[in-house]
Design a protein around this nucleic acid. Structure first.
Lengths: 213, 213
DNA sequence: CCTCTTTTGTGATTTTTTTAACAATAACCG
DNA sequence: CGGTTATTGTTAAAAAAATCACAAAAGAGG
């Protein structure tokens, strides 16, 4: 009955992009105490068509039940598992500047199982400083720290000029994924996953659309 | 010779998404003193195929010259114009929390012509405080400020619970575009442009890809 | 326990996006 | 100043993504 969760079938990037959104809205529904939902209803809430939603979900398994719909809790948990946020993961952050500090202070991601384990910088004025319970370490310790502490995600919030160098060190130390806030497209081997938050690009796209209107 | 810059031909979202990247790499090339470049070469640098690059650019005009390629400076300026960053625009920011403060302090976008004109919050402890040259105003002043000061972009960095309310006020006051950092999909009329920076979604996508590998 | 209704999962179709191919055009060089 | 080469702009083909449509399955109600 259950579809092969085999990696052999490549999941389209467009589908991956929508997964977190499904997860977010399901969380809301769960908090509202909603028990079941149809693809039609969930699609309307999320802003995708019902068939698309069903097709997206079916890349990962058959989570629904004909004549009934989807159980909200079950689907929420299934998606969490698909995205790998059932088992917690540890992160390090390099670059305790503006955005870096904002991330350290907010730690919004901890409630989704992403723990910030240590933070690093090169600036001697910052090293040793405590920010929201974490002491800024010297970036020279980065490589050893990653290797010794089961870290699989690295957050890069350094200026463009040093982003690639930081990424290289993380990769050498065995990191699996990089969450990159530097306005740089990192050069990485294919087994290293990168997700970019190129904020300025977002603003430029907005500007284009505003002008277009 | 020049193609119609008519809005009648809808520009695909996929194309819009790539424009800022082209712009960024052209800026680099310009700084390196590069004078001309072929679609083949630029495509390799940016990471898109040469035909795609040409087709993308041709949505907006014929910027190249056969047998020569593209003049870097000319193309850079043309793209800047396409994206509407030739004329400066003024922004307001609401929500002087972690990310809000980071944006106010860095002001990375000012060098691209986006000026932060005023910042707002509801927290009495923050109102009156000066951050990087800007005094935090009470959010009750928001509507009048926007209406009176030629503001066309609003930055939302408030918690999810108040994001929609802030957006509503901005829209009522006549804003054109919203750069939204709240983990919420804002409900807006079709003439209002929204660009979301849903950071947590990025991290979840990364998690998925890391797990998949 | 049978019929009717709901709603999924999925194969077929349409639309969109990307890639390929090439004719047209301009620079370059002797 | 003409031939050769480079490279665009654009049309056509291929690939990818989204939508449609419907058979199959499960629940609900009598």
């Amino acid at each position: 009955m259950t579809k092969e969760t085999d990696e052999s079938i490549m999941v389209p990037a467009a589908v991956i992009k929508r997964l977190p959104k499904y997860h977010r809205y399901l969380e809301e529904l769960l908090n509202e105490g909603r028990e079941k939902i149809s693809s039609q209803q969930l699609g309307e809430i999320v802003g995708v068509s019902a068939p698309q939603l069903r097709q997206d979900l079916n890349y990962f398994g058959n989570f629904g039940q004909q004549g009934y719909g989807y159980n909200v809790k079950k689907l929420y948990n299934s998606l969490a598992e698909v995205m790998g946020i059932q088992q917690k993961s540890n992160m390090v952050l390099v670059g305790v500047g503006n955005i870096g500090q904002a991330l350290v202070n907010s730690r919004d991601f901890e409630k989704r199982g992403f723990y910030l384990s240590a933070i690093f910088d090169t600036n001697p004025k910052l090293i040793g400083l405590e920010i929201n319970g974490l002491v800024v370490k010297d970036v020279v310790e980065l490589k050893d720290y990653i290797a010794e502490n089961d870290i699989n995600i690295g957050v890069i919030t350094v200026p463009a000029s040093s982003a690639q160098e930081v990424a290289n060190q993380m990769i050498k130390a065995g990191i699996k994924g990089i969450w990159n806030f530097s306005p740089v497209d990192l050069k990485t081997p294919p087994n290293i996953q990168v997700e970019n938050e190129h904020l300025t690009e977002g603003l430029l796209r907005l500007s284009f659309k505003v002008k277009e209107e």
